[in-house]
Amino acid sequence: MIAIVDYGAGNIFSVKNAMDYLGLSAELTSKAEDIRNADGIILPGVGAFPWAMNMLSQSGLVDVIKEEAVKKPFLGICLGMQLIFSKGYEFEETSGLGLIDGEVKLMTPENLSIPHIGWNKLIINKECPLLSGLGDDEYVYFVHSYAAECSDNDIAAYCEYGNKVTALVNRGTVYGAQFHPEKSGKTGLKILRNFAELIK
């Protein structure tokens, strides 16, 4: 069973809908115990970085996520991906979960509007099990204004939006997708299935 962490953020139902559609066992939960017992963890999220860290900490979930994410497959989606980094700068400097070194900063593409909304092409940076079975012309759906700046070693894929934008990261058991796999058609569903297949 995959635990989809429910900490009051939006779009959790669309992740659950996608997992149900794929016939993958996943449950929404806000309990530390469920996260500890799960075979995998998905941290979704739409909203602001400080608000989300505050909600996670009020729910008493920060420590359990930090401990469990390095033991079993963990996928952060959109804001949930941003939270895995060391620090965020949305409105104010806020510490993240620190699962991957990096900072989340406002995007500043020249002559392009923010938020970055729409279908953008994944450009593969390194081999990643979540991209298994995908071609080299795959588009996924993005909605965000802030982006992660981190070591190239942790970047599995990026996209071009004025500059290089971190799209998919991976270090050990920790994965993060800036885009919404649950809104990215067949490509996104394949990525979610690939994630579920990491569970032994």
Binding site: Y21, Y141, K183, G185
Partner: peptide, 8 residues
């Protein structure tokens, strides 16, 4: 629709 369609 949200249970079957995975585009915006």
């Amino acid at each position: 629709t949200a249970q079957k369609v995975f585009v915006p």
